[in-house]
Each structure stands twice: as C-alpha cells, then as structure tokens.
C-alpha cells in the first residue's frame, strides 16, 4: 500500500560547527491509509521535529519528505502551503483555535483560504462538526466551550475537506482522562475510515490506541511495536 506520509532518511541539523544539534538523524518513517502511528520519546528525542517535517512546516537538511507521492522539496512556497491546507490536518495540545471566530468559522477557514465559497465552506464545516459529535456548538466561540469541546473543533478543522494525513502533537495533553479518551476515539475513527494519523505523545496509555508505536531516542528510531493480533491471553473475545 502506498504511504500517505513517507520520510526517507530524513535528518534535521540545527546550527553548525561546535553548536551543531542533530534533532533527527536519517529517520525513515511511513504512515499508511487506515493507520494510526504513535511516536514516543523523551523531550529532545526528535519527535516534534519529526512532526514539523511531516507537515511541511520545516524542511530536512538531508533526506526527503513525501506526502501522497509528492516530494515536498519539489514544491515552491505556495505549493507547500496548498499541500498543507488540502492534505494535512494538524491537532495541537493547546487547540490553537482563533478566539474571534465561531467553531464553524474556525473549521471553515482552511477551506475558505483555499478558495472555497463561504457557503460551501460552511457546509463542509458543519459536516465535520457533526462527525466529531458537536453539531450544536457551531456558533459558539472558543471561550464558550470546554477544553474537550475545543479539541473536537480542532479535530473537525483537521479533517474538513477529506484530508488524508492527520498530525497530532500531544492532542490529549491538556485534557482529563475521560475527555482525552474521547479525542483518541475520534482520531482512531478517522484513521479507521481511511486517513493516516501520526500522533506524538508521552503517555503510554494513549499511544496504545495506535496500530504502531515508534520509539525515538536522540533523533534515531530505536524500536517499534507492530500491529500483530492480540495474543492468546484473551481468546475468549474472539470466540464470541
């Protein structure tokens, strides 16, 4: 299957000479349609760098980043911006919603920036809000919503317009356990429906929602768990 996201031996070096820092060292990484991948590692391991490269917000100093078969290095600035708006959705720990816009306007914004007519963009936004379970909050402003509701809006914004790559940076970091689990359920559902998801987290319990867990240390992938079937421990379930 073709990967939606492919980092090919990607490296990122900040500074040079004595102050050189290797944030990422030749990492190869793929995320396929229908797959949620968690990236775990202590701070400084390179997991945020991996996510910014994957989203085209930064470029590798060596190696390449491909999204849906396109090498980002072959795109000019406008092309990369367009790729980010149409193919990639972001979810951040602190939601990053625009306070002066309603939920529906926040979700519609990327579509409008992409030239979609206001009405069409709003309709797409309402569909996305429905998918994340808060159609009735469309006209609320961010400060009139709970953290969990704001994160749902952020997820709606990330998926509006059928984007196939969802990048999430500690998406449950600011939420309590139950609300966090709801957010994971939404991300999981979106991936089950065909998107590729990459989620950076330091919580093992949240990473466990992923099909694969990739461990980063000092800018290198040191290990990875596969997506094997559950072991015989719980045979009872499969027999039902």
């Amino acid at each position: 299957m073709n990967a939606v996201l492919h980092l090919a031996a990607a490296s990122r070096v900040h500074g040079e000479g004595a102050t050189e820092v290797h944030a990422l060292r030749g990492v190869t990484f793929r995320a396929h349609p229908g797959e949620l991948v968690a990236v775990m590692g202590p701070s400084g391991s390179g997991k945020s760098t991996l996510l910014t490269l994957a989203g085209g917000l930064d470029a590798p100093t060596a190696g390449s980043v491909w999204i849906e078969g396109t090498d980002l290095a072959t795109l000019d600035h406008a092309g990369r911006a367009r790729m980010r708006r149409t193919s990639v959705g972001y979810v951040f720990q602190d939601f990053n919603l625009i306070p002066a816009l309603t939920a529906a306007e926040n979700v519609a914004l990327p579509r409008e920036l992409d030239g979609e007519k206001g009405k069409v963009a709003r309709r797409l936004a309402l569909t996305a809000l429905e998918e994340v379970g808060i159609p009735d909050l469309a006209d609320r402003f961010p400060d009139e919503m709970s953290g969990g509701q704001q994160q749902r809006v952020a997820i709606a914004r990330a998926i509006v317009g059928e984007r196939r790559l969802i990048l999430a940076d500690e998406p449950t970091g600011a939420l309590d356990t139950d609300t966090g689990e709801e957010i994971l359920r939404l991300l999981r559902a979106r991936c089950d429906a065909g998107a590729a998801g990459v989620m950076v987290t330091h919580e093992a319990r949240h990473a466990a929602w992923a099909d694969r867990v990739v461990f980063l240390r000092d800018g290198v992938v040191v290990d990875e768990t596969g997506a094997d079937e559950p072991e015989a421990l719980l045979v009872e379930e499969s027999g039902r």
Binding site: A204, A208, L233, R240
Partner: peptide, 23 residues
Amino acid sequence: IQRQRSATMTSLQDYTRLKRTGR
C-alpha cells in the same frame, strides 16, 4: 529496558484494542 518497553507496549495495545472493540 527497550525490549521490555516494546513488549509491554504491545500488551498495552492489545488490552486497549479489547477495551474499544470487545464486549
């Protein structure tokens, strides 16, 4: 440590899958 972490993480993924899909 790393091998154990991967093994434990795999179990954690299995439990989570049962939690979200089973009865």
